[in-house]
Amino acid sequence: MTAAQQALLAARPDLVAIARWVASGARVLDLGCGDGALLKYLWQAKQAPGYGVEIDAAHVVECVRNDVNVLQMNLEDGLATFGDRSFDCVILSETLQAIHHTEQLMRDMLRVGREAIVSFPNFGYWPARLQVAFGHMPVSQELPYQWYDTPNVHLCTLQDFEDFCRRLGFRILERVALDRGRSVGLLPNLLGSLAVYRLGHGLTP
């Protein structure tokens, strides 16, 4: 692993889990791909050819510089550009909470992809609960914004997300809750600051 790859995975612990779940050679679509670092990593480490979707113009240029295939589009417009089952894996990493049309996008992800991977900050993380209990909106490393300037519009807990998946008819294939980069086994909805899910078609039994 190169130094750049190590730095990336250290800064974004959810990407370690995501990278582990992406099969070698899989066709990957990364929604809200930023500068394309994950796709670049997946290509180098897994020979997984990918596409990124990104709306920010500066990030798009970074993607081109990183030699990552990028499509400048707004996720809120849906994924109509992409055909049914045209990707093995559709990734939405730390972007879910900022999406307005959450249900439409989630349904589209599993229309376009055989599987989906979603990561998001857990609003049920105990320090967040504590801050609310003491009368404040949570501000943390995962949720670094004040209530008045946050891009986040749809925050949820692990339980909320799992209820939502059930309602959409998605199967939860795997789940990892992380705290400071380490996997949390016990009471994930309380002790995990970041959640990563691998989803497939069909209800979780």
């Binding site: 596409y51 550009t81 045209s86």
Partner: peptide, 18 residues
């Protein structure tokens, strides 16, 4: 975007900037 969509459908390599 029609061109981009068709290239994706044809599994060609494409980047798109608006």
């Amino acid at each position: 975007r029609e061109i981009v969509k068709a290239l994706l459908e044809a599994r060609r390599i494409v980047s798109y900037i608006e």
